[in-house]
Amino acid sequence: MPGPGSDTVPVFIDTTKASIARVYDAFLNGKDNYEIDREVLRQVQQVAPEAATLAVDNRNFLIRATRFVASQTGITQFLDCGSGLPTSENTHQVAQRINPDVRVVYVDNDPVVLAHGRALLEENDHTHFSAADIFNPREILEDEVVRRHIDFTQPVALFQMGTLHHYNGTSPTPQEIMAEYIEALPSGSYVGLSHFFDPQTEEHSAIARRMEETFLHSPMGSGRFATLPELRGLFEGLELVEPGLVICADWWPDGPRLKQLDSVSYCIAGAVGRKP
């Protein structure tokens, strides 16, 4: 796969447009990205030097939420929408370390992610991958791979981690997308979701909006920062697990905080909710 300083291009990869998955990979200092993706990182770092913290906080929230669901809820099936590119701690690795019987279905339609997804299929018979549009709930819910490996008569863990802020459509709205997913989940299911966040404070709102402007006008072309009321609308019908909807760094952090948070840590929020 490509790496920094190496732009050997598989024929099916379009490098004239930045890829969301590859940009996140660049933010995490990964190797599966091209120059066009690294350009997005550089542009955002010009307005927020610690911008990579957004991706780090999001990944750490995913890890902690996965540990919580796998260890505390009894759920053994995860539907991870917009899985992105592999890092050292993917959903199936975190969950299956706690319970080897956990099944994980990843959904993504990025060509580079698809290549990695096929590799995952070969190494783990409890891990599956489907290429589909995560912003089209009906397509996901009726997907052959999803239906084969996710039993919707039993509780499911549905993840939308760092995905909806890249949705550029106007209809349906992000709230309507999540409402359709949540309606399809059986009682006792859990939803984990994170999103770029404008805290609407004097200290942090300006940096959130500067990053948003940079993301939207970058080669990636997406990355909206939502307000707290907008984010609450994504969890309609769910009972939020304590501590509720907070910045990702404050959702059950790993011990007492000894280091001061970067400003950008206040610009990504998340929560885990249970469907009654």
Rank of each mutant, 00 (worst) to 15 (best):
E142G: 00
T163S: 13
N168I: 11
P174M: 01
A157E: 10
Q160P: 03
D133P: 06
G117P: 01
R138T: 15
V104F: 08
E142H: 07
D151V: 10
H116K: 08
E176M: 06
M178P: 01
H165V: 14
E142T: 15
P86H: 02
G84H: 08
G162A: 15
N90C: 14
T127R: 08
D110Q: 06
Q175T: 13
R147W: 02
P172F: 02
E144H: 13
D133M: 08
V102E: 11
E122F: 03
P111L: 12
L120W: 12
Q160H: 12
E89A: 15
L114Y: 05
A132Q: 05
V113P: 02
P86L: 02
P155I: 12
N90F: 12
S88G: 14
L164T: 09
G82N: 00
L120T: 12
T170V: 13
N124A: 12
Q160N: 10
R147M: 06
Q93Y: 09
L121T: 14
E139M: 12
V145A: 03
R103L: 14
Q175W: 00
H165F: 13
R138L: 14
V145Q: 07
G84N: 11
H126G: 10
E142N: 14
A157T: 14
D101S: 08
V107C: 04
R103K: 15
I98K: 01
N136I: 04
A119I: 14
F152L: 10
D110M: 02
A95F: 05
L164R: 09
R147G: 07
Y167C: 02
C81A: 04
G117D: 11
R147S: 08
E142K: 01
T153C: 01
G169N: 06
R103F: 10
V156M: 08
G82E: 03
R138M: 12
L121G: 06
S171Y: 01
N90R: 10
F129A: 01
D151G: 05
Y167L: 03
D110E: 00
N124S: 15
V102Y: 07
E89Y: 15
S83K: 00
I150M: 11
R103C: 05
H92Y: 12
S171R: 06
H116T: 07
V107Q: 00
D101T: 14
T87I: 14
E142L: 08
E122N: 03
R97K: 09
V145H: 06
H165L: 07
C81V: 01
I98H: 04
S130F: 06
G84V: 13
P100F: 09
E139F: 04
R138E: 14
L158D: 13
L85E: 06
E123I: 13
S130D: 12
A115F: 03
A115G: 03
H165N: 13
